[in-house]
């Protein structure tokens, strides 16, 4: 689960803090005596920033942005998981035990199963006939290959929480879960980013 930080650290995480020199420099750009202290200006700025953030992103929730992609049962053989991933638009799928999320299976996990780190190394192995895909994929179950535990995000996570989650986590997607940890859908980083674009900013 995402740790819920305090409001304070949430702000510093969003890069909100202005230095004294930042404010003084801005004040020098405005001719005339400004009847405000730097401390009051900072307070105004932070409150206005928070208000703007709520106006722009206040209504976004992870559950609105997620895709309802079918998850992989953890006992599924890897070759069938590969078929499902090939059909899916995501580069990774959530792995479930029943309805509970237990991990993520990504393309990186598959490469690791084949003993390589990068796609180009896989191609090299295939060219040189050193990598055998079939036997490995039929023998192994998803649960053995997946990354576990998965970084999940609650369905009601807002803009700040999603931003923090993607910032602290290298993955392209995260399973969205309800309060009991049941799988609901997959939040893709690209969907989150495109929701931040355009006329809203």
């Amino acid at each position: 689960m995402i740790p819920e930080n305090s409001k304070q650290s949430e702000h510093s995480a969003a890069g909100l803090s202005l230095s004294e020199e930042d404010i003084l420099d801005a004040m020098r750009h405005i001719p005339g005596y400004l009847d405000i202290t730097t401390a009051d200006f900072r307070m105004l700025y932070e409150l206005a920033y928070r208000h703007a953030q709520e106006r722009l992103f206040g209504n976004i929730q992870a559950s609105q942005l997620m895709r309802r992609l079918a998850p992989l049962p953890q006992e599924l053989p890897l070759d069938q998981a590969v078929l499902r991933m090939a059909e899916s638009e995501a580069k990774g799928l959530a792995v479930v035990e029943g309805t509970r999320v237990v991990g993520m299976l990504t393309e990186t996990d598959l490469l690791r199963q084949l003993g390589v780190n990068r796609f180009a190394q896989l191609l090299q192995g295939l060219l040189e006939n050193k990598v055998q895909i079939g036997p490995c994929c039929r023998r192994v179950q998803v649960a053995e290959a997946m990354t576990s535990p998965a970084r999940v995000i609650p369905q009601d996570a807002g803009f700040e929480a999603m931003l923090r989650a993607f910032r602290s986590h290298g993955g392209r997607s995260m399973p969205v879960v309800d309060a009991r940890g049941n799988y609901l859908g997959l939040l893709l980083r690209k969907d989150f980013l495109s929701s931040c674009q355009g006329e809203r900013l």
Partner: peptide
């Protein structure tokens, strides 16, 4: 007090 400094001095034209 909390502020580290007041507003900067204004220009001579001000």
């Amino acid at each position: 007090g909390v502020a580290q400094s007041g507003p900067p001095r204004v220009s001579l034209s001000e």
